[in-house]
Nucleic acid binder design. Structure first.
Length: 113
DNA sequence: TGCTTGACAGAAG
DNA sequence: CCTTCTGCCAAGC
């Protein structure tokens, strides 16, 4: 294994998107995961923001359950009210503060399925 | 070429 | 609880 590249080459970027889509696609119904986990598993622990960026750029490219991706505190994405609705439809419980109950629905992704 | 923005994380006020 | 700041890093302007 090598160090993290200072700059993502097209190849790395492609691999990153592939990993993100792969992981997100594995999220079971009624479960959620975090950007940080996805980024870390994809090989870049600090690229949590790139996960969200990538998902947003590939929204129409796939039917990925990107609504099952929330941040570590269980907060849904800002400016995306629909995410909470979709999660509730799947049976995900929300706390009184409007956050997902991570203790119950947090799912840890794995590349070696 | 350099500053700003953002589907984040985490702490602080 | 909510807002704001810093750190992180790629994309946008």
């Amino acid at each position: 294994m090598q160090d993290y590249p200072n700059q993502m080459t097209p190849e790395q970027s492609r691999a990153f998107r592939d990993a993100v889509q792969n992981i997100v696609g594995q999220i079971p119904c009624g479960r959620v995961t975090t950007y940080g986990h996805i980024a870390a598993l994809a090989g870049w622990p600090s690229h949590s923001r790139m996960v969200g960026r990538t998902l947003r750029y590939t929204l129409g490219a796939s039917e990925l359950p990107c609504h099952r991706v929330v941040n570590k505190e269980g907060r849904t994405a800002p400016g995306w009210s629909r995410q909470r609705i979709l999660l509730e439809e799947e049976g995900v419980l929300f706390k009184a503060n409007g956050h997902v109950d991570m203790a119950k629905h947090l799912w840890e992704p794995s590349i070696e399925l």
